[in-house]
Amino acid sequence: MDLPLIWAGVIATAVLLYVMLDGFDLGVGILFPFAKSPGERDVMMNTIAPVWDGNETWLVLGGGGLLAAFPLAYSVLMPALYLPVLLMLAGLILRGVAFEFRFRARKRGRKFWTQMFAGGSILTAAAQGLILGGFIQGVTVADQQFAGGPFDWFTPYTLLVSAGIVAGYALLGATWLMLKTKDNLHGDAKRWSLISAACTAGLLAAVSVATLFVHPRIALRWGFDLTQGFGLDWGVLGPLLPVPLLGLAGLILLVGSVQRSSHVLPFVGAILVFLSGYLGLAASFTPYIVPYAVDFRLAAAPDNALGLMLVGVVAILPAILAYTAWVYWVFRGKIDEDAGYHH
């Protein structure tokens, strides 16, 4: 068994599930300031109340799996990204506390915790964008240790990626609300979906082009030779074309179904857009787990440790998936103002 490859797949899957699942509930928080009334915010919160903390399970699996299965990668990436990781954790803690306190607060406190929930959601999404941007632009490594500065992750490029993540999460949140709400809030979610789809598409295109110039190595991976003007090798690009085409198909499905006021298809379209972006990243980086210095085989723990941990994952992962699916099934359907889930 190729244990390093299996573990790379497990962690990649956990991160993808985290981004798509926690993405929509962070998106609901990002959209909080645009709701028209406290009642609408209550409904928005109730759409994610049964699932939001379970969605964060995947972040624990992704981060913990990286530490356990690829300790060298963890030891290089964490010092490189300490500050945005701490910002992300602060945002997650803030929105978690706000979530619990908002339901119990009186008038003034309720307003405060509403602002904290929105602020925590935006902070978390922006920090994840800075982490992703810092990862894409590469980490300075010498002798298998981080050799850069504490603010290497803070560049115009990472700010662009961060804006893209915030817009993308808002899109997931808006389409989730189209799935879970009705009447006026469904109409608001329809408008938010179209606006955030336009922002996400524009920022995704800008990030894609900027990435080609930030890293000629990635440009070559996609068939663009920037040393020869803007030469294009269709033999290299051709096999990778389904990835951006998947994103385009998701965007077309999303916009078309939003305009028809569909309930399920906009969320499916948003998921396809995110899946396309994620596959594009995988195509750009493989086999590196620390761009562009350490591949996943070099960073892997010994096979006996990977094998032992895999036994645990094989036992636990189906239970987590089954529990997650069951919760989503139990709390399926639309949310009313007078009927919601409360802690």
Rank of each mutant, 00 (worst) to 15 (best):
D2R: 09
P4T: 07
I6M: 14
I6L: 15
G9Q: 06
A14Y: 01
V15R: 10
G23Q: 05
G23D: 01
V28C: 05
V28Q: 06
L31G: 07
A35M: 06
G39E: 15
M45D: 10
N46L: 00
N46H: 12
T47V: 12
V51Q: 05
G64T: 09
G65P: 06
L66R: 02
A68Y: 04
A69P: 08
A69S: 11
P71S: 01
L72R: 00
A73M: 01
V76C: 09
M78V: 15
P79C: 03
A80G: 07
Y82C: 05
L87H: 02
L87A: 14
L89Y: 10
G91E: 04
R95K: 10
A98I: 00
E100G: 13
K107D: 14
K107L: 13
R108F: 06
F112K: 15
G119N: 09
A125Y: 04
A127F: 09
Q128K: 03
I131W: 05
G134D: 11
G134P: 06
G134I: 10
V139R: 05
V141S: 09
V141Q: 12
Q144M: 13
T155E: 11
A163E: 06
A163G: 15
G164V: 07
G164R: 02
L177N: 02
K180S: 05
D188P: 01
A189S: 13
A189Q: 10
K190A: 15
W192V: 07
W192Q: 01
T200R: 03
G202P: 07
L203Q: 04
A206M: 11
S208K: 02
S208A: 15
A210T: 08
T211N: 11
L212I: 10
F213W: 14
V214W: 06
P216L: 02
W222H: 08
F224A: 08
F224R: 02
D225C: 01
Q228W: 03
D233T: 11
G235N: 14
V236L: 09
L240T: 02
P242T: 07
P244N: 02
P244C: 03
L246H: 00
G247F: 09
L248N: 03
A249K: 01
A249P: 04
L253R: 02
S257R: 06
S261N: 15
S261C: 10
L265S: 12
V268H: 03
G269K: 07
V273E: 10
L275Y: 00
G277M: 13
A283E: 10
A283P: 01
P287K: 09
V294C: 08
A301N: 08
D303Q: 12
A305V: 15
M309H: 14
M309S: 12
G312F: 12
I316E: 13
L321S: 08
A322I: 15
A325Y: 14
W326L: 14
V330C: 02
V330P: 03
F331H: 15
K334S: 12
I335V: 15
I335F: 07
E337C: 01
D338V: 03
D338Y: 11
H343V: 08
H343T: 11
